[in-house]
Write a protein that binds this DNA or RNA. Structure first.
Lengths: 116, 116
DNA sequence: GTAATCTACAACCAAATGGTTGTACATGAA
DNA sequence: TTCATGTACAACCATTTGGTTGTAGATTAC
């Protein structure tokens, strides 16, 4: 199977992590600039602990990493995982394109001389 | 915000739908060939009802559509939604690339627009 | 007709999710 | 030292998720 280059549970985690608007925004923020968890937390209406959990989900999916700096925990984006997900989606598009070709061939394989 | 072209809850649904290996396989199968729900269900160890629910999740995310044919319900892939998700991920990669450029500029110590 | 097939849907369950509050502890600032 | 800040983590709660079984209704096959 073409679409089987990554460990399935790893993909599960990446997509599941992306399936929340707050987490997608955290990723974006971390990509724009490395930020501490509390700095990120200020942006959202939820509690600090909630943001902490969101970051943990992103970390489990390898979408971000954390690095201690004094008492702060700095969140850094890891675009590698994102790229993997992107390539997986492209693989699905490839399947679709192949199918389109296959159908196209079948349609074009009509016997000659059948045109009016 | 650059990454805000789709309705957030729509994106939520797409990624959440993709976050399950069975559903990803259903998408793949439906892309390869349109199939009825029961035909799909035969491929997996779970109950028919479970597969039915998975298809419903995919339908809610607009990743597949169903079409009645007699007593069967034919599942058709809708690669449009997949492509949207793929483009969203690419948008994140763009953010990262922009940041890399920005940092590169800072490091090269050449402020823009200083040339005569 | 009767029987088999395909689907819809409800009810139920265990586990995961997304949030909260509260407590504890380490670190930096005064 | 004392106080504020930043984090970790547990406990709790409501809702969602991913599965089950069971029942019922269409449609097709015999």
């Amino acid at each position: 199977m073409v679409v089987h280059e990554l460990d399935e549970t790893e993909i599960d985690r990446i997509f599941q992590a992306m399936a929340d608007a707050t987490r997608r925004d955290i990723i974006k923020q971390a990509m724009l600039r490395e930020q501490s968890v509390s700095e990120l937390a200020k942006r959202y209406v939820m509690s600090f602990a909630a943001v902490q959990k969101h970051v943990a989900v992103l970390e489990r999916a390898s979408l971000v990493t954390k690095q201690r700096r004094g008492r702060e925990q700095i969140v850094q984006a890891n675009p590698e995982s994102l790229r993997r997900a992107a390539r997986l989606l492209e693989a699905y598009e490839d399947i679709w394109r192949e199918r389109a070709n296959r159908i196209g061939e079948i349609l074009s394989n009509q016997p000659e001389g059948t045109e009016p």
